[in-house]
Simulated scan of single mutants.
Amino acid sequence: MSFGLQDERGFNQVFRPVGTTPERARRRYEWFSARARDLSATRILELGCGLGDAAHSVAISTGAEVLGVDLSRAFVTEAARRFTAPNLSYRVLDIWSPDFDALGSFDLVMGNGILHHLRPNLVAVLARLRALTTPGGGLAFIEPNLAHPACLFLFGTAIGRRWGKLEPEEMAFYAGELGDAVQSAGWEQVTVQTTDLLLPGLPTPLARPLLSLERLVKHGAAAKILGQSHFLTARAAK
């Protein structure tokens, strides 16, 4: 893995676009856009938008109004510089700020690798997001799988955490605990699919065989270990 821009606190948050990283990102953005279309979403919130790539991709592909929020002013400034569209905006905002309540309602709340930064207050965070979601609206997050060997090294060892410059409370999830937290926050129709063999920063020629292997194991028990990510969806009660 190759890291790029850090936030103001010095933590690595962004992968450089090398090797398999761009294809991995493209597939994720398409997944978010598909969830938006499933919901006929017209207004979307991305929590932890980083440099804005996902929000921009979803805004362009769906035509929905997309708002990306992030704690980092450096990230939001760069996102706004890189991407402009009439239906796309970015804000520096903390989920616990009173201004968060004034954002209005959203048909979809999404995030790419952000819930594992919010472990200590996860159920409260998920409940806060549900309060902003329209009846029947959805949740879509992609989170790291702690059972995957690379994630277990990165999150579960001292050397891995130092190398990755992880935040002190940052921690990947097992599938069951992530689903349980979402249900505890009052969401319905919760699904957690563990997949994605395309790790960031691998040599590009590895992409095709890894994707072929992914199709073979996608619905089997091996995916729980070989899949690097949990793809989480849920719905707010109507």
Rank of each mutant, 00 (worst) to 15 (best):
A102C: 09
F100M: 14
L39D: 02
E143D: 08
R81H: 12
T77G: 10
N112T: 06
A85P: 12
N121S: 15
F141W: 13
R130Y: 08
D107Y: 07
L67M: 11
R82E: 08
I60H: 04
C49D: 08
G63N: 08
F153M: 06
L39Q: 05
A85Q: 05
R130C: 12
A79Y: 10
V125A: 12
G113T: 06
L45G: 03
L122P: 03
D70Y: 10
A59E: 08
G113H: 03
P86W: 06
P144F: 01
S105L: 15
F75A: 01
V125E: 03
P120E: 09
V123L: 00
A59G: 03
V125H: 01
L88T: 02
R35L: 11
I60Y: 01
E65P: 02
F141Q: 11
A34K: 14
T133M: 04
A79E: 06
V123E: 03
F75N: 02
H116M: 06
R119C: 09
R73Q: 15
V125T: 10
F75K: 00
T84N: 10
V123D: 00
D94P: 10
S61E: 14
L146A: 15
L93A: 08
R82F: 07
V76S: 10
T84H: 13
D101S: 14
P86I: 06
A131N: 11
D101P: 11
S57L: 05
E65D: 15
F75Q: 06
P120Y: 12
L88K: 02
G137E: 03
N87F: 01
G68D: 09
R119F: 06
I60W: 07
L88Y: 02
R43N: 14
A127P: 01
T133Y: 06
P149W: 01
L45S: 05
S105N: 09
L51H: 12
E78N: 10
G68F: 10
R73F: 14
V69M: 13
V92N: 07
F83M: 08
A127S: 14
F153L: 10
A140R: 00
L122K: 05
L93W: 11
L39W: 06
L129T: 01
V69G: 11
E143S: 08
S72A: 09
A150V: 04
A55R: 06
N121W: 08
F153N: 00
H116G: 10
S61M: 11
A55Q: 05
A41M: 13
L103V: 11
